[in-house]
Write a protein that binds this DNA or RNA. Structure first.
Lengths: 302, 302
DNA sequence: GAGGGGCATAAGGATACCTTATACCCTCGT
DNA sequence: ACGAGGGTATAAGGTATCCTTATGCCCCTC
């Protein structure tokens, strides 16, 4: 659902943080290269938006109220998340011109790469990273062709001819909304019961759906689509609004499960696990940044 | 430091998420109660800002590119953080008119309360919560007077006459920037060495400073201020830019340490711990929401 | 090949925002 | 007590942004 309330904009929150850091609206304005009245108006508008008194202007210099201090603190997490987004988009924008060139499947790029980049940045802040996304087959090709230095793919099988190390593990899980009868269920859902239940699914051809279909086909069963949607986000929205259960990557629902918007239901008789592997060309020598990244994500280098 | 790059605004990111959910710009526009051209222009402007192609408009309906899907995913964390901020500010705005009235010290309100509220909302979404901030003494008074239902205070001592349970633990830690010589130090810093080192500090009278001064005074030592600043945020900014070490609440530096902007240096000979306690009036009966909250944060009720 | 759904463009108008200039206020020093 | 200085709010004017309605174009489907 769309954001309901009026949302404070990040520039104003950043300005408030600068007031906390620098001790006056004037200096905060200077740090943001804007005029003092502009900063003053933005801050007043922020106070109107939130309906709170953030600054105490009674004594000459503007000082943060306790409320203002709390808002600064709470906005810190927003900046961190936005920083991650900017880090990710910057690496996508770099398009192969970085000193460390990564390739990754969509799922890995979305859920894992930003964290690794953040971690890498703390030890090597100046390394320009580029990121390209594709399916596992494409990523392997790019690694072989030397178009990327390191690739990250998911899948049960090893990639031959390439250096390889398991980084993480991802499995498909059954999720429902919290008010669904299965949300409180402790007894696992079996393959037969799952096959007989209409599910919210991706359209035919998606990797996630293929894994599920293959696992069920191994038992002589098939899937029963309830509706077919075009994106993981759309599926999550449908499940959260109570349309029905779905099978999704655990990585994709991690945040939603943590926030309580979705509930994982245990399953049995189904092998829906796959590893996430780092791959690299054996022949080429890995750069310093690549080695730092790989050891950082837990890969033992030769 | 202020945000350098141009920051995408949350409404546009939210719009992009709606496109992913609903499958077309038109429907996303309708969900946001704006005209279709307005949504189209916002999305195009978002693509310009990020320098990336987020939507594939070639086939009639607009579909997200893999890049667009990644941006949606990354922005999810931004919405979560902003939701926490809005939850916190809403409870401050409610000012005692909520069905569950909380009081908390500044530190607890800033770092812990939003998480508890989020947790509470997943099991009781409709409870209106109000939050008031003050020092530990004020909070205890409010609880006694029945102005708030539950209070959260920090400090080593019990509050008598009130129901009480330890919720969490907070201690003061020594932090430096990652390039400081102490950042790699494994041997703990002793009280004498700490007293001889100029520190970035809060001004006289702050609770954090008092705890430190009392701990050192017990050993016949005193503090050596390097500079004195007015807020925790200002101190963190000074430490991060390499001005010198500081003693800060572990809660206050949790995110910065996780992100690698600050490093905790081990200390010894110093008792800088304090508990965070929930307090409530023994005489009054606790409401359902209050009991849910307290058991949720790990307090055993009578 | 005709119809329909969906997106982009154009024109016009309202709104929000920023900058410079200036007045007010508080604090501090003598 | 009084003046100087730093800091913030207000006013006026101009610009850029953003939205809405109207309309054209394109792709897909039947």
């Amino acid at each position: 659902m769309p954001l309901a309330e009026p949302v404070p904009d990040l520039i104003s929150l950043d300005l408030l943080r600068s007031v906390a850091d620098l001790g006056s609206i004037r200096r905060a304005a200077a740090a943001h290269t804007m005029s003092q009245p502009a900063a003053s108006m933005r801050l007043r508008s922020l106070e109107r938006t939130l309906g709170l008194e953030l600054l105490d202007r009674s004594s000459g210099r503007a000082r943060l109220t306790p409320t203002g201090s709390a808002v600064v603190q709470w906005s810190e997490a927003v900046f961190t998340a936005m920083g991650t987004l900017l880090l990710g988009t910057a690496s996508l924008r770099t398009e192969g011109r970085g000193r460390l060139r990564l390739g990754a499947s969509l799922t890995v790029a979305e859920y894992l790469v930003p964290g690794w980049l953040e971690q890498l940045r703390t030890v090597a802040p100046d390394v320009r990273v580029s990121l390209e996304m594709g399916n596992s087959h494409q990523v392997a090709e790019w690694v072989e062709a030397g178009r990327v230095d390191v690739g990250f793919v998911e899948g049960p099988e090893d990639v031959d001819g390439l250096g390889c190390g398991v980084v993480d593990r991802d499995d498909l899980v059954l999720v429902v909304d919290p008010s669904h009868p299965w949300a409180r269920r402790r007894r696992p859902v079996g393959a037969r019961e799952l096959a007989g239940t209409p599910l919210v699914m991706r359209e035919v051809g998606s990797g996630t759906r293929e894994v599920l279909e293959r696992a069920l086909a191994g038992l002589g069963l098939g899937v029963t689509p309830l509706v077919e949607l075009g994106s993981t986000t759309a599926i999550k929205a449908a499940v959260e609004s109570g349309h029905g259960p779905a099978i999704l990557s655990r990585l994709a629902v991690r945040i939603d499960v943590a926030d309580g918007r979705l509930v994982v239901v245990p399953t049995e008789d189904l092998d829906l696990e796959r590893s996430i592997r780092a791959i690299w060309a054996r022949g080429r020598r890995l750069g310093r940044a690549a080695r730092t990244l790989l050891t950082g994500v837990g890969v033992a280098l030769p």
